[in-house]
Amino acid sequence: MNRKNKPFESSWTLARVLLASAALLVSGAGYADSSSPASDQTDVTLGLGVGFTPRYMGANNYRSVVLPMLSIQRGVLFADSTRGIGLQWKSSTGLSASAAINYDLGRSDKNTSSRYGSNALKGMGAVEGATVADFTLGQELLPWLSVSGEAELRMAGEHRGNRYRLGFEGIAFHSDTDTVALDLDAHAGDGRYNQTYFGVSDEQSRLSPFAAFRADSGIYAYSAALNWLHTFDAHWSTAVSLTATHYTDQARGSSLVANDAEAMGMAALNYTF
């Protein structure tokens, strides 16, 4: 872990981004088209995933995770263990939108298997959980290329601010059994969000080994994710996701961040009823 007088190196990762991508692949997803007769059908997918992720955004040590997954979708309604509970819609012109209520688990100042956290954060205090509203809007530009934006807004709980994402998804390969997609995203936060996860107050600096740092609003990271979905039959499928993330100058000045770039990955086995 960096000391107060050690120059900061950067890295960023967000497991929920990876997990949400995997969950979408897991369910085979798509958004419900309101004109589709299949909108009255209920789809249920169970999955079990394993992966590796940094202990918190900016950590230089990793942990392994085991993640049970559940996705239920009926028409425009969905309930998902990673995306929350909400509505999703897609038009015949490729315009899509969704709105969901979810929960951000925050960050612990101890090693934990259930959420981000590390013993190295002793003195920083815990970031408690927060209820969030998540809104996405996307547009298919070409049959193999789409653009999307996301806003995750804090509603209750920890005053952790809001985060935003803008990105492109391209289908690199598609067949009857396999789909390979590449995601390129920019991640941003308002001043409170960036300060919560990258900033160090004077009091925190006094109690921990980290130098004081004031984080401003703006883009704090760029990421690239490679997602592969393989379908065995109408019920069984596997999903694999690898994500590489690079911090911008917005977060690089913080002694909480230990590497300029980092990677995370996950694989899941899924059954759709």
Rank of each mutant, 00 (worst) to 15 (best):
Ser241Asn: 15
Ser237Thr: 12
Gly138Ile: 04
Arg3Pro: 11
Ala79Gln: 00
Gly253Gln: 03
Val65Glu: 05
Arg163His: 05
Leu18Asp: 09
Ser91Leu: 03
Ser205Phe: 06
Val50Asn: 05
Ser36Asp: 15
Arg55Ser: 14
Pro68Gly: 01
Leu182Val: 05
Asp43Lys: 14
Ser223Cys: 09
Asp185Tyr: 08
Thr93Lys: 14
Phe168Asn: 07
Asp185Ile: 01
Leu226Thr: 00
Ser223Val: 06
Gly117Pro: 10
Val127Ala: 07
Ala23Ile: 03
Asn60Gly: 15
Leu269Phe: 11
Ile171Ser: 09
Ser21Gly: 11
Val200His: 07
Ser92Ala: 15
Asn119Thr: 13
Leu18Cys: 03
Pro7Asp: 04
Thr196Leu: 09
Asp185Thr: 09
Leu46Asn: 09
Gly125Cys: 05
Asn162Phe: 01
Gly170Glu: 04
Thr112Asn: 07
Asn5Ile: 10
Met69Cys: 05
Ser118Tyr: 13
Gly58Trp: 01
Arg74Ile: 08
Thr13Lys: 13
Arg115Leu: 07
Ser34Ile: 11
Asp33His: 15
Ser175Cys: 04
Arg252Val: 12
Tyr220Phe: 01
Leu137Val: 03
Gly218Ser: 04
Asp40His: 12
Glu152Gln: 10
Leu67Val: 14
Thr136Asn: 10
His159Ser: 14
Leu226Asn: 00
Asn259Glu: 08
Val44Asp: 04
Ala29Trp: 13
Asp185Lys: 09
Leu207Asp: 13
Ser96Gly: 11
Ser175Ile: 06
Gly189Glu: 06
Thr272Ile: 07
Tyr164Leu: 00
Met1Asn: 11
Ala100Tyr: 02
Ser237Asp: 13
Thr131His: 14
Ala15Thr: 15
Asn194Cys: 08
Leu137Lys: 01
Ser208Val: 02
Leu48Asn: 08
Leu24Glu: 15
Arg154Val: 12
Asn119Tyr: 11
Ala23Glu: 12
Asn111Gln: 07
Arg192Ile: 12
Glu169Leu: 02
Lys90Asp: 10
Asp80His: 01
Ala268Ser: 15
Leu70Pro: 01
Ser11Asp: 09
Ser254Trp: 03
Leu142Gly: 05
Leu48Ile: 09
Leu14Cys: 11
Asn259Met: 03
Tyr103Ile: 02
Ser10Trp: 04
Tyr62Arg: 03
Gly199Tyr: 01
Ala15Gly: 14
Lys4His: 10
Thr93Asp: 14
Met124Trp: 03
Ala133Asp: 07
Leu153Pro: 00
Asn194Gly: 06
Val147Asn: 07
Asn162Gly: 05
Gly161Met: 03
Ile101Gly: 02
Gly28Trp: 05
Ala251Thr: 05
Glu158Asp: 07
Ala258Arg: 10
Tyr31Phe: 15
Ser92Tyr: 14
Ser175His: 06
Gly253Glu: 03
Asp233Ile: 09
